[in-house]
Design a protein around this nucleic acid. Structure first.
Lengths: 212, 212
DNA sequence: CTACTCGTATGACGATCATCATGTCAAATT
DNA sequence: AATTTGACATGATGATCGTCATACGAGTAG
């Protein structure tokens, strides 16, 4: 380590960073579509344009990749999901997020979909390290949804938790089912339920100042 | 193949049936706690008191076991979950089911827990065969919840779908998270949300109107 | 120009897996 | 009593996996 500042200036460091980015992209996508242990290092590195041996120049173990790729998926996906805030009320924001989440396009795009839903069962079976990372990203998402509308409001956080549970469960069920008809029905019904929860949250909110 | 009727009367057939039952029990439990492909045949058969080779006297492949064990888990678990009907109203029934589902005991008992939640991510990645089985069991559960209260009612089925999505999502999130505090909060919040949905369903069933 | 650094490629290791061929022995049939 | 059946055990096969030792080669520093 000659100088810590030129890490991004040298050609070699830039090449390694590009490789790392490809590994993270491939890892995040494959783990969401094939599971934490279902995504193997060999095919993953091949997708990244490298061979399996090069993996250990970037991560000491597969578990470390799982942690990094999971967070990487949210770092790149969260801004796309939340978008710029232009909703007029708290209830409207919750409804809009449910619409963005519970639809056919998101359901069918497993590699780029929400990691909370795609890796929920895997996280339940994973070690405490991964679950801590899962919780960290979940808390960040809850904050990102709630903060612009109700900073530090516990009731609004509860609203968001319920909405996310409904969305994660609805998306998971719609994916687990075989027939297109039932799958679409699940998505539609959960959207309606999300609207019901959002309206109920609006009337119950102890701090109604920010909404409307 | 002398007589097809005495298959259950002979000592050998009874022994095989007992072995099959142990394999199904072990398979259903291990697949819920370790995943569809995470549960290996070797350890599974050892838990059933047999060796790995004996497996193929009962199932032609591991996939066939997955189908049978998944259904087996519901055949033995559904009566325990639904219990005898003694609720006075549709909303009360939905709330009671949410209470039975969204609690610490169910969360921590992964091997005997609800297969919909434990295998949701796995089903999304599985082939159409397993997803068809998943859908079949889901439809049976929806029917078993709804039928005693609203036979053939589409609105009641929608209520049940939304409740199950909320329950599956809430339980999955509570398992995927590291800290006990957040996990319990998720369960509590989702119980409250389930009650909100149940009340909204009650007012919607008898009197049309409100929001959609 | 020389020596060193280090990301990557190659190949191998042991472990684990699903699957199957073969042997064995008790129960069932004749 | 003799024969057949079939559930189960044993062991092997080939595939796949994570991990690592080693070697190469381009970039960097002196």
């Amino acid at each position: 380590m000659s100088s810590p500042t030129d890490r991004t200036t040298t050609a070699r460091a830039a090449a390694k960073q590009a490789s790392l980015a490809r590994i993270l992209d491939a890892g995040a996508a494959r783990m969401r579509s094939e599971g934490l242990s279902g995504a193997a290092i060999g095919p993953l590195m091949q997708e990244a344009g490298l061979t399996h041996g090069a993996f250990y120049a970037h991560f000491p173990s597969k578990n470390e990749l799982a942690l990094a790729a999971f967070s990487h998926g949210f770092s790149s996906g969260r801004p796309r999901w939340l978008g710029r805030i232009r909703d007029v009320s708290w209830a409207a924001r919750l409804k809009r997020l449910a619409q963005r989440y519970l639809n056919q396009a998101h359901r069918d795009n497993l590699p780029e979909s929400c990691g909370f839903a795609a890796l929920a069962s895997d996280a339940a079976r994973a070690g405490p390290q991964f679950r801590e990372r899962y919780e960290e990203e979940l808390r960040r998402t809850l904050e990102a949804i709630r903060r612009p509308f109700a900073d530090g409001d516990d009731a609004a956080t509860d609203d968001t938790i319920a909405l996310m549970a409904l969305c994660v469960g609805g998306l998971s069920l719609s994916r687990a089912v075989a027939s297109e008809a039932l799958s679409m029905r699940i998505l539609r019904v959960c959207q309606t339920a999300a609207a019901t929860l959002a309206d109920a949250a609006d009337t119950q909110d102890s701090t109604p100042g920010k909404s409307k």
